[in-house]
């Protein structure tokens, strides 16, 4: 359960203040499938960064599972990112000199899980995404779709409750893009994951049960397919 109340985010650009988000109120139920759409500069990415605790709002409160996470310090926020939130990025962000398995292992290394358990969880994760064969390949030996699947494995390896995907297919061709989307949707369905996808793509956005359109830092439209 995510609750945003009166979230604003201002950026200082030169001597001007840009209001990327203007007092956004938003509730996301656990296990919801939600898409964030809107033109560039509409604030959808900023909203996602705030949801992912990569950015702090200028004002407003953000409660995750009843806990006010805006008040947490850096270390506690990092722990929330580690344990509760998974990220999938448009540009994959894999470490080029690490193998697929090592990339997927990273969050577990950061949270200090012991090596034997790490290996087990990583190979299970890679297997569920059909990447077992590719575990020892480095990113430059993988196709775009495979890279994004490694990134998904990395996001899921610490079993988060929320998956945030920022244009996950933006850098993929149509067929591997739809494959990646299907994988993410499967995870959402099988594990009851809260899924938030930021996208330009109307078609992809419409697959979500709840579709939010943003314009100028405000929620313009909130169509909830689950609630008529």
């Amino acid at each position: 359960m995510i609750e945003l109340r009166q979230i604003s985010r201002d950026f200082e650009v030169g001597d001007q203040t840009v209001h990327a988000l203007r007092a956004v109120d938003l509730e996301i139920r656990a296990g919801e499938y939600l898409s964030l759409m809107g033109p560039s500069g509409s604030g959808k990415s900023t909203l996602m960064h705030i949801l992912g605790l990569l950015d702090r709002p200028t004002s407003g409160t953000y409660e995750l599972d009843g806990k006010d996470v805006t008040a947490l310090d850096d270390a506690a926020q990092a722990a929330v990112r580690r344990n509760e939130i998974g990220f999938v990025f448009q540009f994959f962000h894999l470490v080029p000199y690490l193998t697929a398995a090592e990339n997927a292992e990273l969050p577990l290394v950061l949270s200090g899980v012991d090596p034997a358990e790490r290996r087990e969880r990583v190979s299970a994760g890679l297997a569920s995404l059909g990447l077992s064969e590719r575990a020892d390949h480095r990113p430059d030996q993988l196709s775009g779709g495979q890279r994004q699947r490694v990134a998904i494995a990395r996001a899921m390896v610490s079993a988060p409750s929320v998956l945030l995907a920022d244009e996950p297919t933006g850098n993929l061709d149509r067929s591997s893009g739809s494959e990646v989307i299907r994988l993410i949707e499967d995870l959402h369905e099988q594990r009851g994951l809260t899924l938030v996808i930021v996208t330009h793509d109307q078609e992809m956005g419409r697959r979500a049960t709840r579709q939010i359109s943003m314009v100028d830092g405000e929620v313009e439209e909130d169509r909830d397919g689950a609630r008529p």
Partner: peptide, 16 residues
Amino acid sequence: TAEIGLLKALGAPRAQ
């Protein structure tokens, strides 16, 4: 820089 950003996103605190 990008790698450091990634580590942060994956939940590495500042101290780490």
